[in-house]
Design a protein around this nucleic acid. Structure first.
Length: 683
DNA sequence: CAATCTTGGT
C-alpha cells in the first residue's frame, strides 16, 4: 500500500523537471537565497510563495532545498513546500513532494488532502484518506473537516455518511470543527434533517455552527426558517449574529417582505463592529429586493464611515445605480474602479456595462464592453439588451451574431434580450427567426418570458390577430405579462375587441394593478367612448384602486431630484411652472394641441390640458432646462410608461430648445432630438 | 518546537 504514494520517478525530481520551464529560461530578477541563508530564512521565502506567479521562484527554492540537503531532515520544510505549491495552484507538485518524503506524519496527509480539496479534486482527496491507515497514520480532528469538505464539494452523501460514522467511532463528533463541517456537508447534500440533528446534538455551538444552519436554510430558499435561527442565535445561543450571518442568509433574501428587510437591517445595526462583508451583505440584500434607494444610501454611509468598498460592493451598488439612472454615481464608481485598477474583473465589468446601458449611456457601456479581456454570456446579453432598450435592434442583432461566432452559447436570457430588441425596433422577421432558432438550434424550451416577447413583437408590428392566436395556442398558461403585452398593442392599434379580451383576463389575474385599467381607459378615450372611460373609472373606484402616481427623476449636482404629477414641493417650483408656461406657449406656436386621450378622466378639454401640463416628466424637463446650460442633454427616468401627450411634447421641446432629451420609461429609452423620437412613435 | 481544520459575499 505504501508504494502507492511513491512515484517511480521520485528520485529524479528537481526544480527543472518540468520540460516547459528549463532553469536557464527563468527570469533572472527572482529573489534567491544567499549561500549563507539559514533554514528559517529559506522557510520564510517558501512561505512567501502564495500565488501562481510565484511558481518559478518556488521551483528554484525547491532546488536549493534539495541541493543543500535541508528538505528531508526538516519535516516542517516539506510541509511549507507542499503548502506553497498548493497555493500556487500546483497540486501535482504538492503530491510529488508528498511522495518523496520518507517519514510522513499526520500533517503531511492533512496538507495533501486539503490541497486536493481546494483544487476540487475530491476523489483524490478521499484516495489519500483511504491509504492512510495502511501507512500507519490515523486521521485526526484536522483530517475529518477536510474530508467532509471533499464530500460536500462532490455532493457525495454516501462518503459523507461513512466519514460521519468514522468520526463517531473515534469520538471526534464533539469537536466543533468537525460538527460544523458535518452541518454544511449534509446541507449541501440536501439532507437538512441530518444537518439539524447534528446541530442539535452538538455539545458546544459557536457562531459558525449557527451560521452554517442559517446558510443551510437560506440556500434551501427558506427565508423564514433562516431568519428564525438568526433571532434564536442571539437569545439562546450566547453568540451574536455577525458578518457571516448576514452573508449566510443572502441566498434567501430575494423578494422578501419589507418587514423582513427591516429585521435584517436591525441585525446589521446591532453589530458592534461592521466590516466590509457586513456592509456588502446588507447592501446586496437591499439591491436584491429592488430597494435601490436604500442600497445607495447605505453605500454612501459606508463610504462616509471610511470603509473601503471592493468589487463585491460595486456589483451590488451598480445595478441600483442602473435602476435609479444615477449616472453620476455610477461613473464615479467607474473612476474609482479605474484608479484602483480593479479590472479585469468579469463581474464588475458586466455590472458596469449594465449600469451604463440602463443610465442611457450606450457609448460608455460599449467602451467597457470592448475593453473586456474576457466576456461571458452575461456580458454580451447586457450589451444586447442595452441596444434593445434604446431601440437599436440592428446593433443588438449584430452583437448576437458575433456572440455566437465567438463560440458562446446563448442562454434563455440572451434570447429574451434579442427578441425583445427586435420587438422594440419593429424587426418582425428577425424576432420570429430567433424564436425558432432558440428551439431548433439550441434546444432551449421557451418560457413565459419568451412568449411575452413574441406577443409583444407581433403586437407592436400590428399583427394583433396573430398575437392573440399565439396567446391562445401557447403551451403555457399566459400570465399577466403576456396579456399586458397584448393589451398594450391593442392601445397602439386601437383594437377594441382583442383589447377587451386581454383586459378581461388581466382584471381577473391582477385586479389590483392600476396600470391595466389606465391602458383600457386610454383605448376607450382614443375612441371617444367617454361613458366607457367613466365606467372604468367607477370600477377602479369601487375596487379602491388608485392610479399609481407618475414620478420622474432627474440627476443634477450629484442628487436625484424627484417630481410627482402636479408637484409643487420643489424649492424651484415657481420657476419651473413659469418655464413650463413659456414652453407650452411656444409649443402651441409650433402647432401643439394637447393629446387629451392620454388623460384618464373625461374632463373638459381645457381641464385635461391642465392635468397634462403638470405631468411629472414635463416638470422634470423644465427643471433641467432651468438648471443646465444649453446643449447639455437632459436625462429623465420615469416610473410608468410615458404618456402620449408627454411624448409629443418632448419631441417639440427638443426642437424648440435644441436639447437632446433622453427619457427612460418603464419599458425603454426614448431619445428625443430635433422633434423626433428614436422609438419611431412606436412604444 | 513548528507545520494542518470549520461559516460567509459578485
Amino acid at each position: 500500500m505504501r508504494s502507492r504514494f511513491i512515484s517511480p520517478t521520485a528520485h529524479l525530481l528537481c526544480c527543472n523537471s518540468n520540460p516547459d520551464t528549463p532553469l536557464h529560461f527563468l527570469p533572472t530578477n527572482l529573489r534567491l537565497p544567499s549561500p549563507q541563508a539559514t533554514v528559517e530564512s529559506l522557510g520564510r521565502l517558501v512561505d512567501g510563495c502564495a500565488s501562481p506567479s510565484c511558481l518559478p521562484t518556488l521551483r528554484r527554492l525547491h532546488c536549493q532545498l534539495l541541493t543543500r540537503g535541508v528538505l528531508h531532515p526538516n519535516p516542517s520544510m516539506g510541509i511549507k513546500l507542499m503548502r506553497a505549491y498548493s497555493s500556487c495552484g500546483d497540486p501535482a507538485a504538492t503530491r510529488q513532494v508528498f511522495d518523496v518524503t520518507p517519514d510522513r506524519n499526520i500533517i503531511f496527509f492533512n496538507v495533501m488532502i486539503r490541497s486536493y480539496v481546494s483544487h476540487g479534486r475530491y476523489g483524490d482527496a478521499l484516495g489519500v484518506y483511504s491509504g492512510m491507515s495502511a501507512y500507519g497514520v490515523r486521521p485526526d480532528h484536522y483530517t475529518y473537516p477536510c474530508l467532509l469538505n471533499a464530500c460536500k464539494g462532490a455532493e457525495h452523501l454516501l462518503g459523507g455518511l461513512q466519514i460521519h460514522g468514522a468520526v463517531t467511532k473515534v469520538g471526534l463528533d464533539s469537536c466543533p470543527f468537525v460538527g460544523n463541517t458535518l452541518i454544511t456537508m449534509y446541507s449541501r447534500c440536501g439532507v437538512l434533517s441530518e444537518a439539524e440533528r447534528v446541530f442539535k446534538g452538538m455539545p458546544y455551538r459557536d457562531a459558525v455552527s449557527w451560521n452554517s444552519m442559517v446558510a443551510a436554510y437560506a440556500q434551501k430558499g427558506e427565508p423564514d426558517r433562516a431568519l428564525q435561527i438568526c433571532k434564536q442565535m442571539a437569545v439562546s445561543g450566547g453568540v451574536r449574529p455577525n458578518a457571516a450571518t448576514l452573508a449566510s442568509i443572502l441566498p434567501a433574501m430575494t423578494s422578501i417582505t419589507s418587514d423582513d428587510a427591516s429585521l435584517v437591517r436591525k441585525l446589521f445595526d446591532d453589530m458592534p463592529r461592521k466590516g466590509l462583508i457586513s456592509w456588502n451583505a446588507m447592501i446586496a440584500i437591499y439591491a436584491y429586493n429592488s430597494k435601490v434607494t436604500d442600497a445607495v444610501e447605505l453605500y454612501n454611509q459606508m463610504v462616509s464611515e471610511g470603509v473601503e468598498p471592493d468589487a463585491i460592493t460595486f456589483v451590488s451598488v451598480l445595478p441600483a445605480c442602473g435602476d435609479l439612472s444615477a449616472l453620476a454615481l455610477g461613473s464615479q464608481i467607474h473612476d474609482y474602479v479605474k484608479k484602483k485598477k480593479m479590472c479585469p474583473n468579469l463581474f464588475l465589468e458586466n455590472a458596469l456595462v449594465d449600469m451604463y446601458a440602463k443610465c442611457g449611456s450606450l457609448q460608455d457601456a460599449r467602451e467597457v464592453f470592448d475593453g473586456m479581456k474576457e466576456k461571458d454570456v452575461v456580458s454580451w446579453t447586457s450589451m444586447i439588451s442595452g441596444y434593445g432598450m434604446h431601440g437599436l435592434g440592428e446593433d443588438a442583432v449584430i452583437l448576437f451574431e458575433s456572440m455566437q461566432k465567438s463560440g458562446l452559447k446563448p442562454d434563455h436570457i440572451a434570447f429574451v434580450s434579442v427578441i425583445s430588441a427586435c420587438s422594440h425596433a419593429g424587426m418582425l422577421k428577425e424576432g420570429k427567426h430567433y424564436f425558432s432558432c432558440m428551439m431548433d438550434q439550441y434546444q432551449l424550451i421557451p418560457t413565459v418570458e419568451h412568449f411575452t416577447c413574441m406577443v409583444d413583437l407581433l403586437g407592436r408590428a400590428g399583427c394583433l390577430e396573430e398575437a392573440y392566436d399565439f396567446v391562445k395556442k401557447m403551451p403555457l398558461e399566459p400570465d399577466e405579462r403576456v396579456w399586458g403585452a397584448l393589451l398594450s398593442a391593442c392601445r397602439v392599434y386601437q383594437n377594441m375587441t382583442i383589447g377587451l379580451a386581454a383586459a378581461d383576463h388581466l382584471f381577473k389575474l391582477v385586479p389590483e394593478e392600476s396600470g391595466y385599467y389606465v391602458l383600457l381607459s386610454n383605448i376607450y378615450a382614443k375612441a371617444g367612448r367617454w361613458e366607457d372611460v367613466t365606467a372604468v373609472r367607477n370600477i377602479m373606484r369601487s375596487r379602491g384602486i388608485q392610479k399609481s402616481p407618475g414620478c420622474s427623476n432627474v440627476e443634477f449636482n450629484n442628487r436625484v431630484h424627484k417630481f410627482l404629477m402636479g408637484d409643487k414641493s420643489h424649492p424651484q417650483s415657481r420657476e419651473i411652472y413659469a418655464k413650463l408656461d413659456i414652453l407650452v406657449a411656444k409649443m402651441k406656436e409650433s402647432g401643439y394641441v394637447a393629446v387629451t386621450d392620454s388623460a384618464l378622466h373625461d374632463l373638459e378639454d381645457e381641464d385635461k390640458e391642465c392635468h397634462l401640463a403638470v405631468h411629472s416628466e414635463k416638470l422634470a424637463i423644465a427643471f433641467a432646462l432651468i438648471n443646465t446650460s444649453s446643449g447639455t442633454p437632459i436625462r429623465i427616468t420615469k416610473n410608468l410608461r410615458i404618456c402620449g401627450d408627454c411624448h409629443y411634447a418632448s419631441k417639440l421641446i427638443s426642437k424648440i430648445t435644441g436639447r437632446k432629451i433622453v427619457i427612460r420609461d418603464m419599458y425603454r429609452f426614448h431619445h428625443f432630438e430635433d422633434g423626433a423620437c428614436s422609438c419611431g412613435d412606436y412604444w
